[in-house]
Every structure is written in C-alpha cells, then in structure tokens.
C-alpha cells in the first residue's frame, strides 16, 4: 500500500512537474559541464566560474551544462561521473570538497578532461588539472589599503571556517594590514559556518564595537556582514566577486576572480591534445585576479597609491603576500 501510495502521489505530482523542454542541441561545440556547490548567480564562488566560461563563449562555441547547488558531495560525484559518461569534453568540479571523489572517478574516463579547484593537486593523473586562486594576493593589497584608511587603527575580518580559500584570503589580508601599519589591530572572527548570515552580521557588529572602522570577509554568509557594515557606513572590502552592488556606499574595492584566464589555457591544451596534468593559478600577475574599485566610493588617493604599490610589489615578487606563496 505504501508503495502504491507513493507511486500514485509521485505520478500525480509528475503531472505538474516541469522540465524545460529544450535540450541544447549538440553540434561540434566544445561540451563543458560545471558542477558547483552554490547557486550559479551567487555573486561569489560559483558565479565566478560560470562567468569565466561565459566570457570564453563570446568567441567560441561552447555547450555548457551547469549542475549548481550541489552541496551534497556524493551527488556531485554522481554528476561528475554522469557528465563524463555522457561524453562531455571538459568537466569542471568547482569545489575543493569534490577532489577526493574526482581522484577516484577520473581514471575511469581517460578521454575526458577534468579540472577542479580550488586546489593544487592533480593526483598525478594525466587528465586532471587543478586550479586555484592566489586570493592572499588580493587580500594583501586590500589589507594594505584597509590599514591605510583606518582612522581608529582597527580592521576586522569575518570568516567562515579557517580552511582553504577563505584562510588564504584572510591570512593575506591580515599580513597586508600589518605590513602597512605594524600597530594595526587586525581582528579575525571565524564564525564557524558558511551559511549563518545572521551570525555573520553580528560578527561584523562585534568588530565595529571593538573599534574596527574597515571590514572585510569571505564566503557566502558575508552578505549579512555587509548589511551590518552598510548600516553604520563602515568601509568594506569584498572578495570572490564584485560586491559593489550589495552596498554601493561602503564597498571600496573587491577582489574578483577571472577564471577565463586559465580556462582558456586549459581549453587550448585540450585542442593540442593535452588532457590535463597541469596546475594552474590565477593571480595578480596573470590578471586572473583583479582588484575592481567602486568608482562611487571616494577613496583617498594616498590609500589607493599604497594599494597600487603593494600590487606592484606582489607582481614583481618583492612582496610575499601569503604564508606559502
């Protein structure tokens, strides 16, 4: 009976179930699949890779399939396998938590190119590339500017959990702030969650109460922190995407990922018959990381100058922005 009920109800719902009917026609276009943990328009990590492929689509025909919102790691693994099986040329596993699965799946599909990130590990496989963002570099530059513009001598960082890309960015930011002003109070608050927006907002308020007048933060829950900073007109530095739209009054600048820089290389390699095995990094020097300023924000010229100097220093190698880079 249970089974019958479930079937009947499922069938009933199927009547109102919908599926966009137009499947993309497959021609000679390059077939690329993206598997990503959050929404494709999240103004952050996932959107950055989608925008990267879309930038390439302007001058090349690409058939793109996106499986976004895949936070369940095993579901992502199933998607990676399925896309490979369906003959996609390039499968992008856009989440560092997917790597362990990819390592086991990729050997089964030697003719498919895989790329994943952010990471620096190709598992020694010929058809897997890894990509990462030197987010410490942008973090450093913005840390320098934050310390230069702070009047109270305090900057605050709202982080999720001290891991991966978030840790890289935060460490770079703190290092930059201290390099600019050794006496700066650079406080970091890892709230313990990638998704608790309310807690992120309160973390920003805690920073402001403790005397921070410039803030930054990383991961998708920082929208709450941006809102809290906006209410008090406290300056904000963004990362992973241009966050100006979220608070035009306070966003000074954002570190933006231009994945197309390395995606072009990966695709060019594929054209040349190289399926993978390479490590890629976007950084300031290769313009894969850019600092986008908010023109509406009246930034002190001296502050911007300090930032530019730091940027130049990182590009020519005279400044080390991170612990391991």
């Amino acid at each position: 009976m249970k089974k019958l009920n479930l079937c009947l109800s499922a069938a009933l719902l199927a009547i109102i179930l919908i599926a966009p009917s137009s499947l993309l026609a497959s021609g000679k276009a390059l077939r690329v699949a993206i598997i990503a943990p959050s929404a494709k328009n999240d103004l952050a990590f996932t959107q950055s890779i989608v925008d990267g492929i879309k930038a390439i689509q302007k001058d090349r025909e690409i058939e793109l399939a996106i499986t976004d919102g895949t936070f369940v790691v095993e579901d992502a693994a199933a998607a990676i396998r399925d896309y490979a099986k369906k003959g996609y040329d390039l499968v992008l596993a856009h989440g560092s938590q997917y790597g362990g699965s990819l390592k086991e799946i990729a050997p089964d599909f030697p003719n498919t190119s895989f790329a994943w990130g952010t990471s620096a590990d190709t598992f020694g496989l010929a058809n897997v590339s890894s990509y990462e963002a030197a987010s410490d570099e942008g973090g450093y530059v913005m840390g320098v500017m934050a310390a230069a513009m702070s009047k109270k001598g305090g900057v605050g960082v709202v982080g999720p959990i001290e891991v991966g890309d978030a840790k890289l960015y935060v460490d770079g930011f703190v290092k930059g702030a201290k390099a600019q002003n050794a006496k700066i109070r650079a406080k970091v608050n890892y709230i313990g969650s990638f998704s608790d927006v309310a807690l992120a907002a309160e973390a920003a308020r805690a920073h402001m109460a403790a005397g921070a007048d410039v803030l930054t933060g990383t991961a998708q829950m920082v929208v709450g922190a941006i809102g809290a900073a906006r209410a008090k007109r406290v300056a904000w530095f963004g990362t992973q995407a241009n966050q100006t739209e979220l608070a035009p009054e306070i966003v000074v600048a954002s570190q933006v990922y231009k994945w197309e820089v390395i995606l072009r290389k990966i695709i060019a390699d594929m054209d040349a018959g190289i399926k993978g095995g390479k490590k890629y990094e976007i950084n300031l020097a290769n313009n894969g990381i850019v600092i986008e300023f908010n023109d509406a924000y009246k930034l002190d010229a001296a502050v911007k100058e300090a930032g530019m100097k730091a940027m130049a220093g990182i590009k020519d190698g005279s400044i080390q922005s991170g612990a391991s880079h």
């Binding site: 396998r81 938590q97 362990g100 999720p160």
Partner: peptide, 23 residues
C-alpha cells in the same frame, strides 16, 4: 558506510552536515 562506500573514500566537510549526509 557513507565514508567507506563513497567515491572519495575519505571524509570531507563543507562546514555543515548536509554535504556529507545528504539530509
């Protein structure tokens, strides 16, 4: 079983439980 029967044969966290358990 989710760990040792998974594709990755390891444990990884994305900060919450859903990524691992699928709810």
């Amino acid at each position: 079983i989710l760990v040792f029967g998974s594709e990755s044969h390891r444990m990884v966290t994305d900060g919450g439980s859903t990524g691992f358990t699928g709810s």
